[in-house]
Amino acid sequence: MSPPRALLRAEDLGREYEGFTALDGLSLELAAAELLGLVGPNGAGKTTFLNLAAGLLEPTSGRIEIGGAAAGSVEARRALSYLPDTPVFYEDLSVAEHLGYVAGLHGVDRPGPRIESLLGRLGLAERSDSLPAELSHGMRQKASIALAFVRPFSVLLADEPFDGLDPPSRSVLFDLLAEARAGGAAVVVSTHRPDVIAAASRCVGIREGALAYDGPPDGEEIAGFFDAALSG
């Protein structure tokens, strides 16, 4: 029996910013239905890795593929949904218009029910006609989550998605991530939260741009990584 096809594959991935090495030879594979908790201290290279996978950054060495296609290519963009750490909006579009637009860009046929469902579950139904400037920090985060889930994907990258969420919304996000996995998607969540790491099927730790841990999300080894990372 052949091993499951990797939905995300990074090979010797490196990225430098004017002499500063943000990511140094990272190799990683992620299969379908995996939920990977990406951890590491501030400045370790987590966001750089996610941006490289999303195609927002170009690697200075190595390569990264999404569903077998180079990150940033049309095929990779079709397969990948990216939830950034800072929500980004058009200031002149309402929440519902944003969702309809993004669904349209990804070719979703009749997105109405999906949009209504997401807005309802995330507690945004009453704010569907609100402009971004009228939303609180938490509501903007929830709208950003809805935008990541309104379109089909086989790989989801989420950068600190639980930040700013109230407990009911955190629970909804856990459910959405579980549904994505159940649907066969590979999910990468960058986080510092123990409850998120506990929910992951696998944990990857990055320190100073290099892979420092790859294994189960519990046990002594990951606890050792956290101790080492936090103590510098």
């Binding site: 079709r78 349209g104 860009l105 990804h106 070719g107 979703v108 046929d109 009749r110 997105p111 999906r114 089909p152 994907f153 086989s154 994505a180 649907g183 066969g184 998607a185």
Partner: peptide, 14 residues
């Protein structure tokens, strides 16, 4: 998560 997709390029541009 792959369901519900129509012809991509055309509808996206639209």
């Amino acid at each position: 998560m792959e369901s519900g997709r129509a012809g991509f390029e055309g509808s996206g541009t639209e």
